[in-house]
Design a protein around this nucleic acid. Structure first.
Lengths: 248, 248
DNA sequence: TGGTCCAACTTGTCCTATAAGCTGATGACA
DNA sequence: TGTCATCAGCTTATAGGACAAGTTGGACCA
């Protein structure tokens, strides 16, 4: 549930507990619910007109995102926002756009740190199979430049393939979440990224470094790719200075 | 639920759905459940002698860890292992020791990539408050070298404080999960880390670089710290070559 | 004042019933 | 014989009521 299995553009009917969880989270974020005091199962049941089962599942979802803490006998309490699971696309969809914008930047910062290293790690022991799949991806991307959604799907696969080749399940998981987060937020903001043609060229550079089993080259190519992406991201979203006075 | 709110050494009574989820996961890992076919709510209910509500919550937990995929009307299906949420301490506790050992190494690899950069980022805009808390931590660590568990608690806080200073919620979340993972696995293997005295000295070096607002110095100090940790980790666990023929 | 105990509240589990969605097989029609 | 609509049966989603188990705060007693 935490991570969407649906394709990014699918119109999905969310279950009742997820809907209620969204409403509750928004209420917490907006400050309507004072910190530390979350509604009980019965409160939720009454207020939203749902069964206790649904109220229960709602709280379980919020607990799995570290938004609240629940234990038998004790009241549900709201956990510190700093520790919520911001890697979850579910949570991202419930947050207001200004926070999502900030998170997107922080997300990109993380990718800039990790992905070049992943590319370098992958270069060491990459298999012919993986290389073939990467080549496939590039070919398909070249054709899909007119269809951003489909392009991003393949883009996603391309990067994940490199992650997988780096042979580290923890890093793999992180990047998986991160990329899902990216598509989720893109779905929210309804923005299509620009510069797909250039992206294809950059992907090719990465690919060629991997073919040559050249860690340094792969790292550098990936870094170039991401830094350019970053600037287009900034150009698209405009306001770079929105993070100014956020922290508590 | 996903991330433990309990202190690491607390004896916790797990809820029924969590217990069943653990059993089911182990069964999947051991190959007793053929890939793609997971038991239904009724199957679980019958087989484990629990109510359908519990069976339901079990599946929800497994779904939140991306172990299975559940949708109305469709059978529950087991998802590819490569995409399970290995950042979850819950899942880690259910996996066999050999896999946990591998994951610990991969985890450390991630820390080596991220934490030096976090330290450098933190050095830029660190506040006096944070510096004071770090100093506090070092003082306490110096006293606690005889009590590994308490020491690690403070160690954890020290590193998290630096994460927080780096002002990136995504990276913060990752490191939070990662360190929890570390303590969880340590609880499993029952191993106490060695070299606490040296660790304190290294923490001091990091702290001093931060005081000087020196990004390069902080990065270097953190890198030294982690590389040494890595070697003691290897020394403790012995078999370095256990990852040889794992990938399918 | 200090401590014990209990009542009220809260979450955990169980049971039963119905609604809603999917899948595969059956059977009608061309 | 091949194609497609339909439906029965299985599965998950939601509802309501009941009791068990754990926690908390206040009443009560010494």
């Amino acid at each position: 549930m935490q991570r969407g299995q649906e394709s990014p553009d699918a119109v999905k009917v969310r279950t009742l507990p997820v809907q209620v969880a969204a409403l509750l989270t928004r209420r917490i974020v907006s400050g309507d619910i004072e910190d530390g005091r979350a509604p009980s199962e019965l409160d939720i049941s009454r207020e939203f007109g749902v069964s206790r089962v649904v109220a229960r599942e709602t709280l379980k979802i919020l607990a799995s995102l570290d938004i609240v803490e629940v234990a038998q006998g004790r009241r549900v309490v709201v956990r510190p926002r700093a520790e919520w699971d911001y890697l979850s696309p579910l949570l991202i969809e419930w947050l207001p756009p200004e926070i999502v914008g900030e998170l997107l930047q922080e997300l990109h910062q993380m990718r800039v740190l990790l992905e070049p290293e992943l590319a370098a790690m992958a270069a060491a022991g990459i298999t012919e199979e993986t290389l073939n799949r990467l080549k496939d991806g590039i070919d398909r991307m070249a054709v899909l430049e007119a269809d951003p959604n489909a392009y991003l799907e393949v883009d996603h696969e391309f990067h994940m393939e490199i992650c997988r080749a780096a042979d580290n399940r923890i890093l793999d998981r992180i990047m998986y979440s991160a990329r899902w987060l990216g598509t989720a937020s893109r779905r929210i903001t309804n923005e299509a990224p620009a510069g797909l043609r250039r992206a294809t060229a950059e992907h090719t550079e990465i690919y060629e470094a991997l073919v040559a089993r050249d860690p340094e080259g792969a790292r550098a190519a990936m870094r170039r790719h991401l830094s350019k992406n970053y600037s287009t991201l900034l150009a698209e979203k405009g306001k770079q200075t929105r993070r100014a006075a956020r922290r508590r």
